[in-house]
């Protein structure tokens, strides 16, 4: 009761090791062994710190579970609801992450404005600065509560038409990078581990970790998370964001990606036989008539077969 143990340098070192060792990617086991061997007290400090931390984590893991997702229109709450979210529901976590980024940038924790669509739905969003965004299905876009020109595409696809303002660039955070407009119409797809950007008018800069790539109209970029390989390609400017005009264009993307685009746009599951997943697709398909019309149409254009698969569809090789 009298002497709370104050963290001392050895405890700090032990904590630093506990943090490093705690990452699944940790691989400096020999370095860790050397630290432990240097002083028998090191192991004791490491064990004590790890045990104390594990106990705290166990307490947190037992805390009352998440509330339902709040309404997209953010209600003013004294304490942001995301603090309580511990279930790894993608949307909830994404909101949490975005909230944090916004806070970090601006040092003023205003709740972000959330725009969301269900799979198969479209939604046009007028942003406060006069720009607009069209959201494809299964998409989540968040605008900073303090700055309508600072957005985050959490997942899904959106086409942006931007009111250009040199002094105050329009910025979309996506996949750990930023896309900064230079007077523009552009489209972003955010999948689980990958970002794709295509520009139809003007130009954007894609920026990450101090590097920047300029994309002019008619150019597209694709980057996988954690990869330094950025793929650039040409894209027909009039097909960018075509999903919003009732058509989808594929210009050499893999069948698996095309299926994800179809699924998002049509609001139905679209599976692909594993053997076909990497096959490149070049086609433009009209979107009228719903999945029952679009899937056979797409299959006919790509030399495949579209078959019903439970509630969704599967793309298979032609017999």
């Amino acid at each position: 009761m009298t002497n709370p143990i104050e963290p001392d340098p050895m405890t700090d070192e032990a904590i630093a090791w506990a943090v490093r060792v705690g990452d699944p990617a940790f691989d400096d086991w020999e370095g860790f062994e050397r630290w432990l061997a240097a002083d028998p007290a090191h192991a004791a400090a490491y064990h004590a710190a790890s045990a104390a931390e594990a106990e705290m984590v166990a307490l947190l893991a037992a805390e009352p579970k998440a509330r339902p997702l709040p309404d997209p229109a953010p209600a003013p709450v004294a304490r942001p609801a995301w603090r309580r979210w511990t279930i790894p529901a993608a949307a909830a976590l994404a909101a949490a992450v975005v909230g944090t980024v916004a806070v970090e940038r601006q040092m003023r924790p205003s709740a972000p404005v959330v725009y969301e669509t269900a799979a198969g739905a479209h939604r046009t969003v007028a942003l406060a600065d006069g720009s607009s965004a069209i959201l494809n299905g299964a998409t989540r876009l968040e605008a900073s509560g303090d700055d309508a020109r600072s957005l985050t595409l959490v997942h899904g696809q959106a086409t942006f038409t931007v009111r250009h303002d040199e002094a105050h660039p329009f910025r979309v955070a996506v996949g750990g990078a930023s896309v900064v407009d230079v007077g523009t119409r552009f489209d972003i797809v955010r999948d689980a581990r990958e970002t794709r950007i295509a520009v139809s008018e003007g130009a954007v800069d894609w920026q990450r970790d101090g590097n920047s790539v300029r994309l002019n109209a008619g150019r597209s970029l694709r980057v996988a998370d954690g990869s330094s390989q950025v793929e650039l390609a040409d894209v027909a400017p009039d097909t960018v964001g075509g999903w919003a005009q009732g058509q989808l264009s594929f210009d050499g993307v893999s069948l698996a990606e095309a299926a994800a685009d179809l699924s998002r746009t049509l609001g139905t599951a679209v599976a692909v036989d594993a053997a076909l997943a990497h096959r490149p697709v070049r086609a433009t398909v009209r979107l009228d008539g719903g999945a029952a019309r679009v899937m056979p149409r797409f299959a006919a254009l790509t030399g495949l077969r579209a078959v019903r698969d439970g509630a969704g569809w599967r793309l298979a090789a032609s017999p």
Binding site: I5, T11, V19
Partner: peptide, 8 residues
């Protein structure tokens, strides 16, 4: 971690 160890 440090704050939690200290609390503990």
């Amino acid at each position: 971690t440090s704050a939690l160890v200290k609390l503990r």
